[in-house]
Simulated scan of single mutants.
Amino acid sequence: MSGIRQATHAGSWYTDKGKELNKQLEDWLGAAELSHGPARAIIAPHAGYQYCGACGAFAYRQVSPHVVRRVFILGPSHHVRLAGCALSVNAKYRTPLYDLVIDEQIYAELAATRQFEWMKQQVDEDEHSIEMHLPYIAKVMEDFKSAVTIVPVLVGSLTPEREADYGRLFARYLSDPQNLFVISSDFCHWGQRFRYTYHDRTWGEIHQSIQRLDRMGMDIVESLNPPAFTEYLKNYGNTICGRHPIGVLLQAVSHLEKTGQKMSLKFLKYAQSSQCRNMSDSSVSYAAASLVFE
């Protein structure tokens, strides 16, 4: 692996000017409080920073850069159908702040399981679900940039059984306090352009119904119950794009709980890109969460 994945979404999804981006990230992190850390895993959104940058800060604020040396990033595949998970062919990921280096040793260990395929360069650069987290990771880890590595993993449309398989595989890495897992996910994508217009009128206006629906899902994720989350998605069809990365995290947690390990996950912030009131409206929801080991 010798290639560099360029910051292909910089300049549109977030600013590609280093100083300006640095100031934005500092301001958002400064406005978020440390309330559920140190995080062993976080759930954070991957939309344009003007929509979700402030929300994502609540997850990244829980990270302890003094402890973390390796960041696993599990992002859903938006453009390519995958039955499993895929790794990058690159050695580095570029950000406007500095380049992040892929952990070759962990990649070799993952590849040796034969449970992963390799992303083509074009697939890697088209996908935004991993890239949108890179500037935040670079910012939070800036004092330790020569010591930190990343493990980007593109997650496909996994069956519950495959989520359990990958959960078991990642559990040993999650148990290491030097590892941080970043679970990339937006929440409800509502509107005709997303082909999802669920509205329970007993819950109020459309945006209130969306929030109630998202909160129901968030409560289940907080309960760390993988089958309940699968059942919720089946019943409501909520368009949570990172449902499979979340499912893998829940399965990894479930695996570690069997060894007696206690963990706690809390959602710290919720936001919507806009408030839907009519069927012609659309919105995307964002949520930030942190998992800690007790």
Score class of each variant (00 low, 15 high):
residue 91 A to M: 11
residue 88 S to I: 06
residue 82 L to R: 12
residue 138 A to D: 02
residue 78 H to W: 14
residue 42 I to W: 04
residue 74 L to S: 10
residue 136 Y to A: 06
residue 97 L to N: 01
residue 145 K to F: 11
residue 98 Y to R: 10
residue 96 P to V: 08
residue 37 G to A: 03
residue 75 G to H: 04
residue 138 A to H: 04
residue 42 I to H: 04
residue 154 L to W: 08
residue 130 I to R: 08
residue 155 V to K: 02
residue 114 R to V: 12
residue 143 D to I: 12
residue 38 P to V: 06
residue 137 I to W: 00
residue 97 L to T: 10
residue 93 Y to D: 04
residue 34 L to K: 13
residue 59 A to P: 05
residue 105 Q to H: 13
residue 136 Y to D: 03
residue 133 H to I: 11
residue 105 Q to W: 12
residue 96 P to I: 09
residue 108 A to S: 15
residue 65 P to K: 01
residue 133 H to L: 07
residue 103 D to S: 11
residue 102 I to K: 06
residue 120 K to I: 14
residue 144 F to S: 07
residue 76 P to Q: 09
residue 37 G to D: 05
residue 141 M to Q: 13
residue 143 D to Y: 10
residue 56 G to I: 09
residue 107 Y to Q: 14
residue 156 G to K: 01
residue 108 A to L: 15
residue 98 Y to D: 12
residue 137 I to L: 05
residue 38 P to E: 08
residue 141 M to V: 11
residue 141 M to H: 05
residue 40 R to H: 11
residue 96 P to R: 08
residue 135 P to H: 00
residue 140 V to E: 01
residue 102 I to M: 13
residue 91 A to D: 12
residue 107 Y to N: 14
residue 150 I to W: 04
residue 91 A to G: 14
residue 103 D to T: 04
residue 62 Q to T: 11
residue 127 E to A: 00
residue 160 P to A: 01
residue 146 S to T: 15
residue 104 E to T: 12
residue 73 I to A: 00
residue 40 R to T: 10
residue 161 E to M: 13
residue 86 A to E: 09
residue 135 P to W: 00
residue 136 Y to V: 10
residue 112 A to D: 13
residue 141 M to C: 06
residue 99 D to A: 08
residue 102 I to Q: 06
residue 145 K to V: 05
residue 58 F to I: 14
residue 161 E to I: 13
residue 39 A to Y: 03
residue 69 R to F: 05
residue 37 G to P: 07
residue 41 A to M: 11
residue 62 Q to W: 11
residue 52 C to P: 02
residue 163 E to R: 15
residue 55 C to Y: 02
residue 94 R to F: 07
residue 37 G to Q: 05
residue 57 A to Y: 03
residue 72 F to D: 07
residue 84 G to W: 02
residue 100 L to S: 02
residue 69 R to P: 00
residue 81 R to E: 14
residue 67 V to D: 08
residue 58 F to R: 13
residue 136 Y to P: 07
residue 83 A to K: 14
residue 150 I to L: 01
residue 78 H to T: 12
residue 125 E to K: 02
residue 53 G to I: 01
residue 62 Q to K: 09
residue 142 E to N: 13
residue 54 A to E: 09
residue 87 L to D: 00
residue 129 S to Q: 04
residue 164 A to C: 09
residue 56 G to K: 08
residue 127 E to R: 00
residue 123 V to C: 12
residue 116 F to H: 10
residue 34 L to C: 13
residue 82 L to N: 07
residue 156 G to F: 03
residue 164 A to K: 13
residue 149 T to W: 02
residue 118 W to G: 10
residue 143 D to E: 14
residue 102 I to P: 03
residue 148 V to I: 15
residue 123 V to P: 07
residue 157 S to H: 11
residue 87 L to E: 05
residue 68 V to S: 00
residue 46 H to E: 00
residue 59 A to W: 01
residue 141 M to Y: 03
residue 60 Y to A: 05
residue 142 E to M: 13
residue 63 V to D: 03
residue 96 P to A: 07
residue 150 I to H: 03
residue 68 V to A: 04
residue 116 F to I: 10
residue 60 Y to K: 09
residue 76 P to N: 01
residue 66 H to C: 15
residue 108 A to T: 15
residue 116 F to E: 09
residue 38 P to H: 06
